[in-house]
């Protein structure tokens, strides 16, 4: 994490050098494709990342012409994002007028990407990106667990008296799963989230508690944690 951070800073510094001194480094452009050659004849600057494999063609700025800060920042952000492609050779174009970024991977034809945030996500695992199939499975399995939890959370049959979890905890309010383990006054001892789920089942809901490895318990935890992730804890307000 630290290394990555340093690398980004280094990269950004490199960029700023380009932007401020506007000295295009001709040596860095040893392996440029015909696209780049063609671009060179127009009004463009080519910025190359430290690995020599990622290039950003910035249209609308001549070699040597300083870029405004926002543009330089955009280029830096894009190059940083491109570093996620590890060993791949990437050429990106930031057109002068269009909003979309043009991206070419390993010499493939350019494709259009609407924003830096929209770059096709390539996670790295064993040096290889995960496949789309894998990502679909992970997403489906995760969502199914959370959805199952959502259903149980809203189902009064977890207890016996017609009360479901959501009746006191809409959107899992006041569950703040991130605060466990903690001493819980109801149980008079340190408790985990699942202990309090069972406490609620047995007390307000007058039901029979679930075992720790009951798939319903796991699903409830999955729903609660996913629903509350990112919600700020405000002591005294829950």
């Amino acid at each position: 994490m630290k290394t990555t951070h340093k690398m980004f800073i280094g990269l950004f510094a490199l960029l700023m050098m380009y932007a401020v001194s506007a000295n295009a480094d001709n040596n860095s452009a040893t392996n440029v494709s015909s696209v780049i050659q063609q671009s060179k004849e127009q009004s463009v600057q080519i910025v190359t990342a430290c690995d020599g494999k990622k290039k950003v063609i910035v249209e609308g700025y001549k070699e040597g012409e300083p870029m405004p800060e926002h543009k330089a920042r955009e280029v830096a952000k894009l190059l940083t994002a491109l570093m996620d492609y590890c060993e791949e050779e990437i050429t990106a174009k930031i057109p002068e007028t269009e909003i979309a970024i043009q991206l070419s991977i390993n010499g493939d034809p350019f494709i259009s990407v609407t924003a830096i945030e929209e770059l096709p996500l390539v996670l790295v695992h064993g040096g290889k990106p995960h496949t789309e199939r894998e990502k679909r499975i992970w997403s489906a399995e995760l969502n199914r667990m959370i959805d199952t939890g959502y259903k149980i959370f809203h189902d009064p049959t977890l207890g016996t008296n017609g009360i479901s979890c959501d009746m006191c905890h809409p959107n899992a309010s006041n569950t703040h799963p991130e605060t466990y383990p903690k001493f819980q006054t109801q149980t008079k001892k340190a408790a985990l989230l699942r202990d309090m789920i069972n406490w609620c089942i047995e007390n307000p809901q007058e039901g029979k508690k679930l075992s720790d490895d009951d798939p319903r318990m796991k699903a409830l935890e999955a729903y609660i944690i996913s629903e509350r992730t990112g919600v700020i804890l405000e002591p005294g307000k829950h």
Binding site: C168, H169, N171, S173, C200, N203, V231, G236, H238
Partner: peptide
């Protein structure tokens, strides 16, 4: 529970009840 946003300023909130 009180909603995560939109609580009128004049409201003095009741502190959280004991579900027991």
């Amino acid at each position: 529970p009180y909603a995560p946003e939109g609580i009128p300023k004049l409201t003095v909130q009741m502190d959280r009840p004991d579900p027991f």
